[in-house]
């Protein structure tokens, strides 16, 4: 009971924290002390959250905006949308890549300015492809594959909490994700079908990338950040089965694309290699 109360207080505290900073102000320059919040790297964060967080970090680095990564046990409850990651800039809190891109654009930083209308339409479409297929597949494997859920997802997700809260929160999360899968028609899929979807998605991305350095030729866009976040995380994360990473490894241009972004934007910090090993 005591643990539950602490947890509720925690959530309440963070809601207040977020509400205080949600007041929208006019465009100000990017401050030095911008922070990005995510769950604990070593023993809490899950594949899908790690991928989303890495995508935002890649995006901010491509924009040349400094951000300090802070790990918090209750990052999920601090986020205004309940999703990982979120950034705290000046007196504003923004979560998820889409809104963060909008936010930086309002501050005068944009990667997709040079694209024409058709290209921008295609970029947005491919970003939704990644969200719709890769992210959903990651969630499916994390929570709907029993082996992964038992061995990795539930223990890691609930690691900061003591029993019984840990079990309650983990099963609650699993239950929620499974209901979502049923609602979008993924409930009846087998693991093999999900891998097949991942392959199909990678095939599409690989085709689109072709031999270019980035999806829209010379300069990276938010699409590159998103794709990098997901592919790199899948490639560097150890799961119960290596099948997911194997599916990506058959597309050599995607592999060199990941390596290129890692070298260009993450060279200074080696910590990324070890950051997201489950």
């Amino acid at each position: 009971m005591f643990v539950l109360v602490i947890h509720i207080l925690n959530v309440l505290h963070c809601c207040v924290f977020v509400c205080l900073f949600l007041t929208v102000t006019a465009a100000e320059p990017w401050p030095e002390n911008a922070t990005l919040y995510q769950p604990l790297k070593e023993d809490q964060i899950l594949l899908s959250d790690c991928a989303s967080s890495l995508a935002v970090q890649a995006y901010l680095r491509m924009c040349g905006l400094p951000v300090q990564v802070v790990c918090r046990v209750n990052a999920e409850y601090m986020s205004p949308s309940g999703k990982i990651p979120f950034i705290h800039v000046g007196n504003q809190v923004v979560s998820e890549l889409g809104p963060i891109v909008q936010f930086t654009k309002a501050k005068g930083h944009s990667l997709s300015e040079a694209l024409d209308d058709v290209q921008r339409a295609e970029m947005k479409a491919y970003m939704e492809l990644v969200n719709n297929m890769l992210l959903t597949a990651e969630l499916y494997i994390q929570w709907c594959d029993d082996a992964t859920a038992t061995e990795i997802s539930r223990p890691r997700y609930s690691s900061p909490y003591s029993w019984p809260l840990s079990s309650i929160l983990a099963y609650q999360k699993q239950w929620e994700v499974r209901r979502k899968m049923n609602a979008i028609g993924w409930g009846g899929k087998t693991l093999e079908q999900v891998y097949e979807d991942v392959s199909q998605c990678c095939q599409a991305l690989s085709q689109r990338l072709g031999t270019q350095p980035y999806f829209f030729n010379k300069h990276p866009t938010e699409l590159d950040a998103l794709v990098f976040g997901h592919l790199f995380t899948i490639l560097t994360t150890r799961l119960t089965s290596a099948e997911l990473a194997e599916r990506i490894k058959s597309y050599s241009n995607l592999l060199s694309f990941c390596r290129r972004i890692e070298q260009t934007y993450f060279e200074d910090k080696r910590l990324i290699q070890s950051s997201c090993s489950l």
Binding site: E122, K124, A125, Y126, E128, L129, N131, N132, M133, Q200, C201, Q203, A204, L205, Q207, R208, G210
Partner: peptide
């Protein structure tokens, strides 16, 4: 073409999400 097939998939996802 393969690229057009990829574009189809992307725009179908766009509609499903948005």
């Amino acid at each position: 073409s393969a690229k057009e097939g990829a574009d189809s998939l992307a725009f179908i996802s766009l509609m499903e999400e948005k």
